[in-house]
């Protein structure tokens, strides 16, 4: 699958597992799968497949 434009090799992985794998905090991210925003509540159940294009925005503090 494509994650932020980069090819990654994962099979049957949920969004939550992907975020944990990438060491990202679920409370600081916006996740888009095939241009659709996915709600935080769905991260544990949403299973990604090989064709999916995933975009993860991870916010850092400061403003």
């Amino acid at each position: 699958m494509l994650v932020n434009g980069r090819k990654m090799d994962f099979e049957n992985i949920t969004i939550l597992m992907l975020l944990q794998n990438l060491n990202l905090d679920i409370n600081k991210v916006v996740v888009e799968v095939n241009l659709e925003i996915v709600s935080k509540e769905n991260y544990p159940d949403y299973i990604l497949n090989g064709e999916d294009k995933v975009e993860i925005i991870s916010f850092v503090g400061g403003g």
């Binding site: 600081k28 925003i37 850092v60 403003g63």
Partner: peptide, 16 residues
């Protein structure tokens, strides 16, 4: 916002 959790919450809520 300053806080990253608030940033993500607002963006997610508005877009959804």
């Amino acid at each position: 916002f300053d806080n990253p959790n608030s940033k993500a919450l607002l963006v997610n809520t508005v877009l959804k």
